[in-house]
């Protein structure tokens, strides 16, 4: 098997195909759209936040398998999390990709992205949905509480 063939594990293809969380929310409290200027990938994320926790999430993701699989992970896992929790997962994922840190224990399925460590240009593909989710949460916080930084 060639090196990059192992990048496309079945788990990545399955998550990308499942597209957990794909769609739109009827009543979102925050939303964000982020692009990857390298390839034109685009992720739109909507969240409905109640009591500082994600009550519902939806995303519309146009991108590669890695980006779509990452979006599906947040579609599956993000409900119930707060902004600090998502920030910690995102930081952990980024550190896993860039520095070989352990897979964030709370979301073990992120291990499917470990082979992407070897491809720095693809890190943004994986991180884009997480960054879009964080931006949506920040917008939600601003709209609900004014411009108060998360502690």
């Amino acid at each position: 098997m060639n090196q990059s063939d192992s990048l496309y594990e079945d788990a990545i293809k399955q998550f990308a195909q499942a597209g957990h969380g794909h769609g739109q929310l009827a009543a979102a409290t925050g939303a964000a759209k982020l692009d990857n200027p390298l390839c034109g990938d685009r992720v739109r994320v909507q969240v409905a936040v109640a009591s500082d926790h994600i009550a519902a999430i939806a995303h519309d993701t146009k991108g590669c398998l890695l980006c779509r699989a990452a979006a599906a992970v947040i579609g599956l896992r993000a409900v119930g999390q707060d902004e600090l929790g998502i920030e910690a997962i995102t930081t952990g994922l980024e550190s896993m990709l860039k520095h070989g840190s352990p897979v964030p224990a709370a979301w073990p399925e992120l291990s499917m992205f470990e082979p992407a460590r070897a491809y720095p240009s693809r890190h943004r593909c994986v991180l884009l949905p997480f960054r879009a989710l964080l931006a949506a949460l920040q917008e939600s916080r601003r709209s609900q509480h004014g411009d108060i930084p998360v502690l």
Binding site: N2, Q3, S4, D5, L7, Y8, C39, D41, G63, C64, L65, L66, Y119, R122, C125
Partner: peptide, 12 residues
């Protein structure tokens, strides 16, 4: 997606 195509092609 072209990125996925190019990634696999790179391995070849």
């Amino acid at each position: 997606h072209p990125h996925d195509i190019c990634q696999v092609l790179d391995a070849h």
